[in-house]
Amino acid sequence: MATVHHSPPVAKAAVPATRRWRSGVPTPRWLVGLIVPVALLGLWQWLVNREVYTRSQLPAPNDVWLAGRQLWEAELLVEHVTISIERVALGFAWGAGIAILIGLAVGLSPVVDALLSPTIQAIRAIPSLAWVPLLVLWMGIGDQPKITLVAIGVFFPVFTALVGGIQQIDRRLVEVGQAYGLRGPALAWHILLPAAAPALLTGLRIGLAQGWLFLVAAELIGASRGLGFLLTDGQNTGRADIIVLSIVLLALLGKGTDVLLGLLQRRVLRWSDAWQA
């Protein structure tokens, strides 16, 4: 083996969880991310103190906290949050699952592409709220139309990202798969999906955000539970604290679920050699 140079691979440093800023003090990344929310909270309290708006227009942070506690004690908070998470989770699973199947078919077959893509693009142009009356007519006012609307919202970003990702796959890597005997589903599983994974994961994250968006649209109309209902309820009863509470909860849940997907993304794409500032 003397003829071949032996050099161990240079281990690439993992993404640093902490980073040294100019001061030289290591700062965790999440702490830096909290600066703006805390500042906003301060600004909010300051606006309340200055009485720029009346208390019924802009409740104090503490009022919102109390409204949350009240709902918690009435055992309603958990119920509203759980049902919303459930609808998003189911809608996301359905929407993303169907998007991956159809996306694979469209990405892999020019015939399917020519057949389905124009229609899918046309359906995509329909505003989310336009679906609501039809879904209510078809499915009533239970969970089903809401989950369906979330699924519709999730479908398009995932579908578009996956098809785009498949179309960008390096032909030479597909050829490697073929040269080593991969065909059909095996080729899709071992080459195409991993190669399109960066695009797909981006699509899933956008899809999830869109899912929360569509959830609120679904729950604004004909719902008796969920955060969207809480929002309308607050509006109808003139409770600004409830409205703000719903908004804050939606932000937290949206961010929380996105963090989970972000962790999945990091894990799946740990091979990636992407640029990092």
Partner: peptide
């Protein structure tokens, strides 16, 4: 089995998993 001009390793597989692709049959 073909060895191409470029290595054409699958970037999402480790070195040993890339070699294992050759051995899969």
């Amino acid at each position: 089995a073909v060895v191409f001009q470029e290595p054409r390793l699958l970037p999402w597989r480790t070195v040993s998993a890339n070699v294992a692709l050759g051995a899969r049959r």
